[in-house]
């Protein structure tokens, strides 16, 4: 059962990576790309708890580092913390309450935006935070939110099914 779960997680991450790099960044009408890997990290964080959140965050962060270039590890670090942060809300999460995950993901994306501004732009001497907030951070959060409505729900439903199955097979052995 554990293998099934790991496989499911891997597939979700790979699909997310493909979507982000192959589909969404080809849409030429905007330079903003929804952050699907971040969404996956958050989802697994509050869905499965801190440990899974951190591990998924590391994998997603590594993939982001590869596709963005620059200093290696900057995204890995932050994604790991995001996974942990979302994992803190594990106990507050209920399957049928969809507003909460949405809120968490948007909040995480804004946090990621501010982090990126600080480590990448601010150190370069660009002080006009307002511009970056209104032209990069907020649009990215909105796009991610829009994509989340679709994808997050799918992940949650599949995870729910897997959990049901696990419970059933556990009950069988007792």
């Amino acid at each position: 059962m554990k293998i099934k779960r790991i496989l499911f997680t891997m597939i979700v991450i790979i699909i997310g990576f493909v979507l982000q790099n192959g589909v969404f960044n080809q849409m030429t009408w905007t330079s903003i790309v929804p952050n699907i890997l971040l969404m996956i990290t958050c989802t697994f964080g509050f869905m499965r708890g801190r440990q899974t959140g951190i591990l998924v965050g590391v994998v997603c962060g590594l993939l982001t580092d590869i596709s963005l270039g620059g200093t290696f590890g900057i995204n890995t670090l932050f994604f790991a913390y995001l996974g942990w942060f979302n994992g803190l809300f594990f106990k507050m999460f209920f399957m049928d309450y969809i507003v909460f995950p949405m809120l968490m993901i948007v909040l995480s994306d804004v946090m990621y935006g501010v982090y990126m501004y600080v480590v990448k732009i601010l150190v370069n001497g660009r002080l006009n935070f307002g511009f970056y907030l209104s032209h990069v951070i907020i649009p990215e959060a909105i796009y991610t939110f829009a994509v989340t409505i679709l994808l997050c729900h799918i992940i949650l439903v599949i995870n729910f099914k897997l959990e049901e199955k696990e419970k059933r097979s556990a009950a069988k052995f007792v």
Partner: peptide, 9 residues
Amino acid sequence: QKDSGSWFN
């Protein structure tokens, strides 16, 4: 590949 994030060109 084009940039996959929103921050870089």
